[in-house]
Design a protein around this nucleic acid. Structure first.
Lengths: 144, 144
DNA sequence: CCATAAATTAGAATTATTACAATTTAATAA
DNA sequence: TTATTAAATTGTAATAATTCTAATTTATGG
């Protein structure tokens, strides 16, 4: 995904600040699935005044805009994926490295992917709205 | 999975305490994928002295024994699955309810599952050991 | 340049989890 | 039984990730 770096970015209410620019730049093409701390560390080198709150605020905004996904891959912290297109992951259970899978069909790994990782299992999550929430949702409420 | 409730449980070094008994009882057949807080809340009603540390200790032990899985489904907290057999999940993005899927093949949902949830997407995680860790692992080290 | 809504910031507060050290207890064997 | 002892439990402190807050700064539009 390509990020535009102007305030015209589909939303007049979105200010383009140097901090945001740095975050967008850092995320663009980044396939490391960084955590908030990763982002903070990388950016604060050039922006010593950068605050953690800004990282979280910006990621919230990008999530709402659908520009990044929040991953629940690591039980210890949130990690972000700047590639919002549907895809899957290859996760190293030792170092927690996360590699994108771009196969057309979920369980069909490329030869390369298959050979590089020793795969010990897989897990499929289906996301959706359960019957109870379907009902509730008609009356407008939203669970965080 | 059936939990035995004696100290013979495959490991002489495992003591069977009332607290553990209560936790095992609570987990047995539990399909709600409870968090540590859920477990604590349920058990501490009968065991007012129960400590959070005991919940975490016990879950660690059960994880090591392969009796529960730690799920990374909820970015906000760990949740536990007392069903260690390979299976997949149906997750409500509103209320975070997690329902087990017992289809023989991952992407083949039963009619019932399909009809109850409005499915808006799926995500496949493959777990394995990456090439770098394969090498490192030969020299014995383990990443938490 | 001004006005203003939005963003940034430092730091406090909260939540989940882990670490620790003292006390208690289950299991074993005498 | 009871004594021994390693393991479990407990309260509390410490840590880590995240969220909240209120004051200050800044990007944008006029």
């Amino acid at each position: 995904m390509v990020f535009k770096r102007t305030h015209q970015d589909g939303d007049k209410n979105m200010k383009m600040t140097p901090q945001r620019m740095a975050i967008l730049e850092y995320l663009e093409g980044n396939t490391a699935h960084p955590s908030a701390a990763d982002i903070y560390k990388a950016i604060s080198e050039r922006f010593p005044t950068m605050s953690f709150a800004t990282v979280y605020n910006t990621m919230d905004m990008l999530k709402e805009k659908g520009m990044v996904l929040e991953l629940a891959i690591d039980p210890d912290k949130k990690r972000f994926d700047p590639n919002p297109a549907p895809h899957h992951h290859l996760i190293c259970v030792h170092c927690k490295k996360v590699v994108d899978i771009h196969s057309s069909f979920s369980l069909d790994l490329s030869e390369n992917e298959r050979n590089s990782f020793d795969i010990i299992g897989n897990h499929v999550d289906f996301y959706g709205i359960c019957p109870q929430c379907k009902k509730k949702n008609k009356s407008g409420q939203q669970v965080k």
